[in-house]
């Protein structure tokens, strides 16, 4: 169903407009399209076993206040910004001892042998821990850019900051994370 729903081929902007017009199927198509990236973002930001709840809450908030989406950022980065707030509001973000995937099926592992995979796992866990310790703005900017490849202008629009400030947040985040990987 997910693929079928998303097979409409409409742009995000078209689907948002359709939802504003009362088209429930448009909302379902947007959910199908953005659930996985949103879940990755939220999981990296600190959501764990409550990930499903935070994802749902994020979409609900987004559709409930869709009039505030002006199209200055992409729908996805706007969704990430809402998700970050939802995670914070739900009060479920906590320091994590364990983190994240190493058996990723979408992104090829950069390590190949068993030893390298163990090293890769440790690095990924350390990185996940370090990301969860970043200040919210740095974490949001870092994940939007490094995890999802968003442009600074898009990030800045979604987070209500300037492009320059977004660059600075990213720079500081990378500097902290590099220390964590030493």
């Amino acid at each position: 169903m997910t693929a079928a729903v998303d097979a409409r081929g409409d742009s995000d902007a078209d689907l948002v407009a359709a939802w504003r017009g009362g088209d429930q199927a448009a909302a379902a198509a947007l959910v199908a399209r953005h659930t996985r990236p949103l879940a990755r973002f939220l999981a990296a930001a600190g959501a764990e076993e409550d990930l499903d709840d935070v994802v749902q809450e994020t979409f609900f908030r987004a559709f409930d206040r869709i009039e505030s989406f002006r199209g200055k950022s992409s729908f996805r980065t706007w969704l990430f910004a809402i998700g970050s707030n939802a995670l914070k509001d739900l009060g479920r973000r906590r320091t994590r001892a364990k983190v994240l995937s190493i058996e990723d099926r979408d992104v090829p592992d950069v390590r190949h042998g068993p030893h390298e995979q163990v090293v890769g796992r440790e690095l990924l866990e350390r990185l996940g821990e370090a990301v969860s310790q970043l200040p919210t703005m740095q974490r949001n900017v870092f994940l939007m850019r490094a995890q999802h490849g968003a442009e600074y202008a898009d990030i800045a629009a979604a987070l209500g900051t300037s492009v320059g400030a977004a660059r600075v947040h990213y720079h500081h985040a990378v500097r902290r994370l590099k220390v964590a990987l030493e």
Binding site: T35, A39, S101, A146
Partner: peptide, 24 residues
């Protein structure tokens, strides 16, 4: 290289169809 893999396993466990039904 590592950043895109953050959260990938947890995200794989999310059922987008279920999320869509619950949200709507």
């Amino acid at each position: 290289q590592l950043a895109p893999r953050l959260g990938a396993e947890a995200a794989d466990r999310i059922d987008a169809e279920h999320v869509a039904a619950a949200v709507t």
